[in-house]
């Protein structure tokens, strides 16, 4: 009995030793010299692998930072301290990058948009868009089936009443949602901006009005009040995100948008998430 046990132990031990030696030998033989700085940077990065830097992932980005291809600031997710930490560690310039946020430029939730058709099929924005242009009356607004929410690596997008809403405190501006949206409703805007035009339809005012209660009619009220902050192209107002001074909540009140397409992000979120009665009026 004892001999059997001993024999087994011996055999297993020898086998383990032998295989360990083989692994060790090959590890030495095929050793690839790696830059330890890359590993360091990878550790300092958030590790979300979101792809917002246009690299394959955080370690890929780290390599490009070490090689000097990208400045650390190109990472959209890292905070300023994190970026500075990487810059200090490598002794290079942090490099600037606009910090951005995604915003869904559409306010047409289930209560405001004329749902002209009943749709039956795959619950995915792109697939729905292929069938008779999707379920909502408006062909330019948010489809509301959550293709953006599905790709968001941070869970920052929520679908409320068939409308995608970005939670700005979670969003890091990686841009995956903007790429996924078939309608191009999602835009990346500077992080400081708080006021947006929640409409994306280039159609004429009356046409839009037929489809949606909260569309931008292109009345130019905002442009007239603050020409340096807003511009109207065609029949659709835009916030001048490249302006020196971005519009504020006070400006929104001053403009008195007739349809309520011009809103602060917080008010928009409040309307959509907390107060369905308001939007139902």
């Amino acid at each position: 009995m004892l001999t059997t046990t001993l024999a087994s132990v011996a055999v297993m031990g020898c086998l383990g030793l032998f295989l360990g030696l083989v692994i060790g030998f090959f590890a030495k033989l095929f050793k690839v010299a790696s830059d330890s700085r890359g590993d360091l940077v990878t550790e300092l990065l958030p590790g979300a692998n979101c792809g917002g830097c246009a690299k394959a992932g955080c370690s890929d980005f780290a390599k490009s930072v070490v090689s000097g291809e990208n400045p650390p600031g190109k990472c959209p997710v890292s905070s300023a301290e994190q970026v500075n930490a990487i810059a200090r560690a490598l002794g290079i310039d942090a490099g600037g990058g606009f910090k951005k946020r995604a915003v869904v430029r559409c306010g047409g939730d289930i209560h405001q948009v004329a749902r002209r058709v009943n749709y039956n099929g795959v619950l995915d924005c792109v697939s729905a868009g292929l069938i008779a242009g999707g379920p909502k009356g408006c062909r330019y607004g948010c489809v509301g089936m959550g293709s953006c929410a599905a790709v968001c690596p941070f869970g920052a997008i929520e679908i409320v009443n068939n409308l995608a809403i970005v939670h700005p405190e979670i969003c890091v501006g990686c841009g995956k949602c903007a790429a996924a949206c078939p309608r191009g409703v999602i835009e990346l805007v500077p992080i400081e901006s708080t006021v947006h035009v929640y409409c994306n339809s280039p159609e004429k005012g009356p046409e839009k009005r037929k489809n949606c209660k909260v569309s931008c009619l292109g009345c130019r009220k905002c442009e007239k009040a603050f020409p340096e902050k807003f511009k109207v192209e065609g029949f659709l107002a835009h916030v001048r995100y490249d302006a020196e001074v971005l519009p504020t909540a006070g400006d929104v009140e001053a403009v008195k948008c007739p349809t309520g397409a011009l809103l602060t992000a917080s008010r928009h979120k409040e309307i959509e998430t907390n107060d369905p009665e308001f939007s139902n009026e």
């Binding site: 058709v117 749709y119 039956n120 069938i131 008779a132 379920p135």
Partner: peptide, 8 residues
Amino acid sequence: EKLVVSSS
């Protein structure tokens, strides 16, 4: 009013 759209 009751028309439904779906894929063929």
